[in-house]
Design a binder for these strands. Structure first.
Length: 843
RNA sequence: GCCCGGAUGGUGAAAUCGGCAGACACAGCGGACUUAAAAUCCGCAGACCAUAAACGGUCGUGGGGGUUCAAGUCCCCCUCCGGGCACCA
């Protein structure tokens, strides 16, 4: 069979074009390299969140990177010095699971996955500077985790303590609070997290609680949603600590008083009981000499565990036990019963509260259930009659029945009563936080070894290794099982070492660091990724930071994004950097959905990027991800949509090939205004330039940017016969095609590179200056003005652009259709919005 | 329960500052080309009413009210969906 040669040439064939260009780009590592500080250009640091090397890119990645890549390329064309790096969040449990399953060492498995995914990224045509690549599981990276750990230890920011920690039986390791979701593991949504008493390493993130909170107000380039989530997570709460005396026979230590935390000290005259968490020291002391009470408290704890197993974490049925002992309210000397209740959290505040049923929903519910007294001490006004209880308002509320404080406003009383308590030695104003220190110890193999040793010379106190001993390298051969504590503990060559203090035999710490340590500072390493003497050179980080645009999934709103803010503040205080926050702007893209659910292996609705690329090409796949919806919304993957983009590219390809010779006329100047078709075509071109330029600097609604290029192409198609008839100048055709290719370059890089070459463009298309809309050509001679009657469209009239109000009005009133409609009616009023519309109010 | 988002044709969506609702696509339908199909090209397309056809008319952005010459857009109330937090004292 004969192949039609002409047809073959005009046919868009991504399978041929894309690998060809990729080869050329791979051969030129400088292509996407950022320039130095002295580039004489403004810098632009654009990052997409680094992936975990699972082995396969999924559509969520493709979408994320398509957004970042379009932005990076656009900024290059706008003349910025762009840093656009990529790396691998390469430590973590899946590598150990794979090792168990396939008997492949975690390192081998991980590095093979990285190689495969890097290849996929290159096939997608993403503009990363691979020279700055960061792989967190390699010693040249994780040694700096250890270095930071030592710095933090020296600064008192890393410490060890025994405490209740979250334990995932599936991961066989401890989890940070941030990794526990509704009482379940963030990686195993069916697994209930247990509480265990363990000695663990913590990073003192709470030292920065206030700064992390206050900094959110200044992060105007972050989504409000993320800022709100972080505010809630930090959970700052101003209140008062008040010591209640204990009136009891029990004389155990620490039992003389119970310190409660309250945000409503103004309600204290209404306290009718004190409630303790089951784990509270005083509750334990009471239980120690009262077997019946001990059994009841034990039952409360069992109920808590059962509720957790049932998946009920918040709002479980309230239960309590009367201890039979009494506490004394220091404000009025009143004796109130002490209860132990299951809804009091041991690890928030002091684990003890004063119960004020009249002014707190939960206390009210509890008092109703157990018949405790309800005493109103707050009212809207002093003489307000009955109000519905519980009455929880504090604005515009006053104290009643509160001794000498009666008549004070609630808000003022809170401050004054705290001061009074302090002056009298039974309390003080305080601030509590929901945020807890970050537990970073993990009983796993595939993570950064913690650079500490234990030696008899120091008792059980940890001894930091000297910096010269770094990196502490992971031993390659490890028997990984899911049982029996830290795998490193079973490697004698690793465990047994020499004490840096006394020179005698010592044991290494066998826990590794949470992998969120790795991702807390990786973007600093990009700026100086080969540095062997420091995590990075300060002057390099200071040049690039803060990140101008950070792009990733909203699922990291708490975890990664709060840890990395913390790490930045620590590094600043160590004098390494000058910025307070890692990223000036954050963008969280939506999920990729298929058949109404997030793509996942278990649901069997995964669309493979490789399949899409094989069928339609990388450009069409990426462009569809940007075209279907605005990037912040969830995207329902429709393969037909990708096919549509492919057709669109094909159409341009045909036109560009057809008008290739005309398009090469880059040096021919346009003369005069040209024909009406030419004017219209050029106007559309410049409108499109203006539109897309605005999308990049504003809302990032690339779906409308791409729609605009489609409109432009439709205009070219509509003008085809006129072009063929010679009614459009060669210079105008060249202007349209050259700019069209430039406008598409951020979205379809292979396609743009190919066409740029075909139409005789010079240099690398991604370094050609971004087109600028010509205001002269945008101007229309005549505009269409809609004419409404009582707000409803009647007709559209044409008037010269820039017409004055009376001209537009006259044109509207002279319109035949308007006259016909207005017959028999009176025009009461005429509203003219010049350049916009006319509305006739008729009766 | 609290705090954020949302709801627009058969579908994804557009309307950026209160000013022509449905741009641009997908799917669909009709036509051209073809022996045929694919591909490509041209056209139709919110719903309802009316009509031989054309010209038309009415309604319409989750529901109800309001402000305005004018509301998808602003205000109040409600419903549903998604996300986050949730005995945080």
């Amino acid at each position: 069979m004969q192949t039609n040669e002409t047809e073959k040439q005009t046919r868009y064939n991504p399978a041929e074009i894309e690998p060809k260009w990729q080869q050329r780009w791979d051969a030129d590592p400088a292509l996407y390299a950022a320039e130095g500080h002295d580039a004489g250009k403004p810098k632009y640091y654009c990052i997409e969140m680094l992936p975990y090397p699972s082995g396969q890119l999924h559509m969520g990645h493709v979408r994320n990177y398509a957004i970042g890549d379009a932005l990076a390329r656009h900024m290059w064309m706008r003349g910025y010095n762009v840093l656009h790096p990529m790396g691998w969040d390469a430590f973590g449990l899946p590598a150990e699971n794979a090792a168990l399953k396939n008997h492949t060492p975690p390192r081998e498995w991980t590095l093979a996955n990285i190689a495969a995914m890097r290849k996929q990224m290159q096939r997608l045509g993403l503009s990363y500077d691979w020279a700055t690549e960061v792989t967190t599981c390699l010693p040249d990276y994780y040694r700096w985790n250890q270095w930071f750990f030592l710095k933090m230890f020296a600064a008192g920011l890393a410490y060890r303590k025994k405490s209740k920690v979250n334990w995932c039986p599936d991961c066989q390791t401890v989890l940070a609070n941030e990794q526990v979701i509704d009482g379940r593991c963030w990686r195993h949504e069916d697994t209930i997290v247990e509480q265990r008493d363990l000695t663990q390493w913590f990073l003192r993130i709470t030292k920065y609680s206030d700064e992390l909170l206050d900094g959110l107000d200044k992060l105007v380039g972050w989504p409000e949603k993320v800022r709100t989530m972080q505010r809630n997570w930090i959970g700052r709460s101003e209140g008062t600590l008040v010591d209640f005396g204990v009136d009891s026979e029990v004389k155990a230590a620490d039992c003389a008083k119970i310190t409660v935390f309250t945000t409503r000290v103004d309600t204290i005259f209404g306290a009718t009981s004190v409630q303790l968490a089951p784990e509270h020291a005083v509750a334990k002391a009471f239980a120690a000499e009262d077997a019946a009470l001990a059994a009841k408290i034990e039952e409360l704890l069992t109920q808590q565990t059962l509720a957790r197993e049932a998946g009920d974490v918040g709002g479980i049925e309230k239960h309590g036990v009367d201890t039979g002992r009494f506490a004394v309210n220091p404000f009025n000397g009143e004796r109130v019963p002490i209860w132990v209740a299951n809804y009091i959290l041991a690890d928030y505040g002091t684990g003890a509260i004063m119960s004020v049923p009249a002014h707190d929903e939960r206390d009210f519910e509890f008092a109703q259930k157990y018949g405790l007294a309800v005493k109103q001490v707050i009212a809207p006004r002093v003489d307000a009659g009955d109000v519905t209880l519980p009455y929880t308002a504090e604005e515009d509320a006053v104290l009643v029945d509160s001794g000498g404080w009666t008549g004070e406003s609630s808000v003022e009383a809170q401050q004054k009563m705290a001061e009074f308590a302090k002056a009298n030695g039974f309390g003080t104003a305080t601030v509590t936080y929901r945020l807890k220190d970050w537990g970073v110890s993990r009983q796993r193999y595939w993570g950064t070894p913690i650079p500490m040793v234990y030696c008899e010379c120091s008792g059980e106190e940890p001894i930091p290794l000297p910096e010269s001993a770094l990196p502490v390298v992971l031993p390659p051969q490890v028997d990984i099982t899911q049982q029996g504590g830290s795998p490193l503990g079973r490697v004698p060559e690793f465990v047994n070492t020499t004490c840096p203090k006394c020179g005698g035999p010592a044991r290494r710490e066998t826990d590794t660091m949470d992998t969120f340590v790795d991702s807390s500072w990786y973007f600093y390493r990009y700026t100086d990724s080969k540095n062997a003497d420091a995590p990075f050179a300060s002057e390099k980080a200071n040049y690039w930071f803060p990140i101008d645009q950070y792009i990733g999934g909203v699922e990291h709103a708490i975890l990664h994004l709060i840890y990395s803010r913390f790490w930045t503040k620590v590094m600043r205080d160590l004098g390494l950097i000058k910025n307070d926050e890692p990223a000036a702007r954050l963008f969280t893209q939506g999920m990729v959905i298929k058949d109404g659910a997030k793509m996942s292996k278990s649901k069997g609705n995964v669309v493979s990027p490789d399949d899409m690329i094989a069928r339609y090409g990388a450009d069409a796949t990426r462009m569809y991800a940007l075209f279907a919806v605005p990037p912040d919304k969830d995207l329902e993957w429709q393969e037909d949509g990708v096919a549509g983009i492919s057709r669109f590219l094909n159409r341009i390809y045909r036109l560009a090939t057809k008008y290739g010779n005309m398009s090469m006329a880059k040096d021919v100047a346009r003369e005069g205004k040209g024909s009406a078709v030419e004017q219209k075509l050029l106007r559309k071109l410049h409108q499109t330039i203006a539109k897309i330029t605005m999308d990049f600097s504003g809302r990032w609604h690339f779906n409308t940017s791409i729609a605009a290029t489609m409109e432009l192409v439709n205009e070219v198609v509509a003008s085809e016969s006129a072009i063929d008839a010679g009614e459009v100048s060669t210079a105008a055709v060249a202007e349209v095609f050259r700019n069209l290719v430039l406008l598409m370059a951020p979205f379809a890089p292979f396609f743009a590179a190919e066409l740029w070459e075909q139409i005789g463009g010079e240099g690398v298309v991604f370094r050609v200056p971004w087109p600028v809309a010509n205001a002269e050509l945008l101007r229309e001679d005549e505009v269409e003005i809609p004419v409404q009657m009582n707000g409803k469209l009647v007709n559209v009239v044409k008037v010269p652009a820039g017409s004055k109000e009376d001209v537009v009005k006259a044109a509207a009133l002279a319109d035949a259709k308007v006259i016909a409609r207005a017959e028999g009616k009176t025009v009461v009023k005429v509203i003219v919005v010049p350049g916009k519309l006319v509305n006739l109010v008729v009766k």
